[in-house]
Amino acid sequence: MGYIEELRSLVGHRPLILVGSVVLICDNQGRVLMQKRKFPKGYWGLPGGLMELGESAEDTAVREVFEETGLNINQLKLFRVYSGMKKMSVAENGDQYYPVTISYVTKTYDGEWAIDPAESETFEFRSRDNLPEHILRNHKRILNDFLSIQSF
């Protein structure tokens, strides 16, 4: 049982503060890797996930990207830290949480695609003028901030 599951077994669905990492993975054409998620159905986001005990934020980013995509990433650059969201997030199972999301950027990745079908339907590199319609609220904020300062 992982840290989050163990914590949830103690507190149930009550609100928690959870720390996670996401990665803006850019290809050589300036597109950003987007993940079409299983949950919530029909929504897109950035690859990433929640921190486990003993991990650094960078470790979390690397592990989550590998688990979800099969890609190895490195040369992570801190983009921004997002916290204090006015609205609580609610997971599919009813778990409530306030996210602290540490976002990174990288253009360095390798490996073979190995999409985790439990979490993802697909991944696509998308340009700023071809973004999906339904993007997770917190990830949309990160993506909009990133695109507002990037000239690609």
Rank of each mutant, 00 (worst) to 15 (best):
G49P: 07
T122N: 07
H139D: 15
L131R: 06
P132T: 12
L33V: 05
K38I: 15
I142Q: 02
E67L: 10
Q75M: 00
L16T: 15
A118C: 00
M88G: 05
L136M: 10
E55L: 00
K41F: 10
G70A: 13
M88P: 04
F146C: 11
E52M: 04
V62A: 02
L46V: 01
G70K: 06
S83N: 13
A114Y: 00
S89T: 09
H134V: 09
Y109S: 10
T106Y: 00
E68S: 01
P99Q: 13
L7C: 00
R8W: 02
I142C: 14
L78H: 12
V23A: 13
H13C: 03
Y109P: 07
K86S: 15
M51D: 03
R126S: 03
P99G: 08
N72D: 10
G111P: 05
H134D: 14
G30T: 09
G111C: 07
K87M: 05
R141H: 09
Q150R: 11
G84M: 12
L16P: 02
G49T: 04
S83Y: 08
P15D: 03
R14E: 02
L7T: 01
T108Y: 08
D145T: 05
K77T: 13
F39E: 15
P117I: 03
S103A: 15
R31F: 06
G84Q: 09
R37Y: 02
T101W: 03
Y109M: 12
H13Q: 11
F123S: 03
A61G: 08
